[in-house]
Design a protein around this nucleic acid. Sequence first.
DNA 1: GGTGAAAAGCTTCGTGT
DNA 2: ACACGAAGCTTTTCACC
Lengths: 157, 157
Amino acid sequence: MGLDKIDLSILRELQQDSSLTNQELADRVGLSASPCLRRVKALEESGVIDKSVTLLNQNKLGLKLTAFIQISMDRHTPDRFELFESTLESFPEVKSCSLVTGQSADYLLEVVVEDMERYQEFLLGKLTRIPGVTGVHSSFLLRRIISRTSLPLDHLK
Amino acid sequence: MGLDKIDLSILRELQQDSSLTNQELADRVGLSASPCLRRVKALEESGVIDKSVTLLNQNKLGLKLTAFIQISMDRHTPDRFELFESTLESFPEVKSCSLVTGQSADYLLEVVVEDMERYQEFLLGKLTRIPGVTGVHSSFLLRRIISRTSLPLDHLK
DNA sequence: GGTGAAAAGCTTCGTGT
DNA sequence: ACACGAAGCTTTTCACC
């Protein structure tokens, strides 16, 4: 699964704009249409390309509050984790949830809601009601400095 | 900027797959091609739709380590922040960087690298060399439970 | 919101470098 | 492996209803 310069160039372009036509993409990476399409298909086939999605503007949708929540559990047993994770799946407010290492927390969540009132409802009405959740530490997004959907291809050999 | 049922339905579909043809999208939301395209264009025009991007598979690219880093600064002065933020922009390892509230940290970073050795290089060679960076607390991703590129449209009126 | 026709883009060949 | 070109098809983009 060796990726050459051109493959990386294709990935870089598509990471920034998946709505490019094959012709435009071919021009940008210095190829003609057919080999370009071949490469894209191969990248999809190999799984390097996962999928293409449309990103929405949170603020325009009225979702103005982003919170990062660190959560610790009382016991580290499989049933605790399973219940927590399956419950979280049903909460639309949860943008991401990661099991992480560390003494201070077990899970790291990113939650998106309309305002502080909704956040409070989420915290008290949903999150802290899950059995096993003991520590909850919230911090709120003030300003997004960097948000790359792109992966760092530059420092790959 | 009122979004009706159909608009939300369009956004839901595109958030999951931006490679849908207009025809397929129209079928899914129960519209014919032209009004469907009209709505999509309007959503782009209004800025609700930001852009479309291709997502890559981190592991297949050899980027196997994700770290969450909490950073605190010695002083909260504009020049400190500006230098930190502009320096971070040049680090390809940084997937996201957010200025956040809280006593324990000022910034929250998500960093993606190939392995622990690269991470160490990033931490010692790059991050901690930025003036003003005092506290650095890392935790590492064990397992991704939820990762939605989608925003929660379900609980919008 | 729907229809239909023209324009543009994509796919898949084959041939040649 | 890539470039080129043409046929056949789907999609997009307009008019207009």
